[in-house]
């Protein structure tokens, strides 16, 4: 026999799709009619609350990114003064071999693969940058630059943040790479006119990519001075 308790469970599980037995019970039970009215009223308010504002131009940005990925060959680049790629890894699947010099080379290849990041402007809240660093184990002691672009990207080991900064030593893209490689120190790479440094920090490695070794070293020094890393 279908009781009020059965009805309430069914109503709370799916208010708009009651099974036949529940509808039959509802027709005959005033207490459940009252309960149903309250659940419906609650659901209506919940539905309204869930309809939060969507960022303006979201669909256009999705289509723009899709088009730019389809049209731009991976090896074509926009000219930039300097690029540092920072990406915070959250997924923890191991991908690369333990050779940490690959991280510096990977960072350059990542910059080459996403040239649109260098020409895009997607200003991020500075607090977001601080939060992203904190999640990766870095505490920002002083600003390292103005964040111009910040985006999640697939990187070895999972997902990372790709950030473009305007620093006092030029524009930079910064990549943080998650990883369990606990080798100390730093490694460098040069490829197709770019210079990169990868350094063990926080929850993995960070890599800095620039167009010159001098700006790379200057920005690396900036990162070391202005960010405290938990290792």
């Amino acid at each position: 026999m279908f009781h009020c308790l059965d009805f309430r469970r069914a109503k709370l599980a799916d208010p708009t799709r009651l099974p036949g037995e529940a509808r039959k019970h509802l027709a005959a039970c005033r207490a459940c009619q009252d309960f149903a009215r309250k659940v419906d009223a609650d659901d209506k308010r919940i539905a309204a609350a869930l309809q939060v504002a969507v960022p303006e131009g979201l669909a256009e940005r999705v289509l723009l990114r899709a088009r730019s990925r389809r049209l731009r060959p991976a090896w074509r680049l926009m000219a930039v003064a300097a690029t540092v790629v920072l990406s915070i890894g959250i997924g923890l699947k191991t991908w690369l071999p333990a050779a940490h010099q690959d991280y510096a080379r990977f960072a350059i290849e990542h910059v080459l693969h996403e040239p649109e990041a260098l020409s895009s402007h997607r200003l991020a809240d500075p607090r977001e940058f601080g939060t992203v660093l904190a999640r990766f184990g870095g505490e920002l002691q002083a600003p390292v630059g103005k964040v111009r672009y910040m985006k999640l990207c697939p990187v070895p080991g999972g997902t990372g943040w790709h950030i473009v900064l305007d620093t006092e030593h030029g524009t930079a893209t910064l990549l943080l790479i998650p990883g369990r490689d606990r080798s100390a120190g730093s490694v460098e790479a040069r490829l197709r006119g770019f210079a990169a440094t990868a350094r063990r920090a926080g929850a993995g490695w960070y890599a800095i990519v620039t167009e010159s070794p001098q700006s790379r070293d200057a920005i690396d020094a900036l990162m070391q001075r202005r960010v405290s890393w938990r290792i």
Partner: peptide
């Protein structure tokens, strides 16, 4: 499809991850 569903996906992503910035990234990905 993007125009029809990006808003719904954004809202779903936002209520999952509770971060507007990450939600947009999730929709992009």
């Amino acid at each position: 499809t993007v125009r029809a569903f990006s808003a719904d996906l954004f809202r779903f992503a936002l209520w999952l991850c509770r971060d507007r910035f990450v939600a947009e990234e999730l929709v992009q990905e």
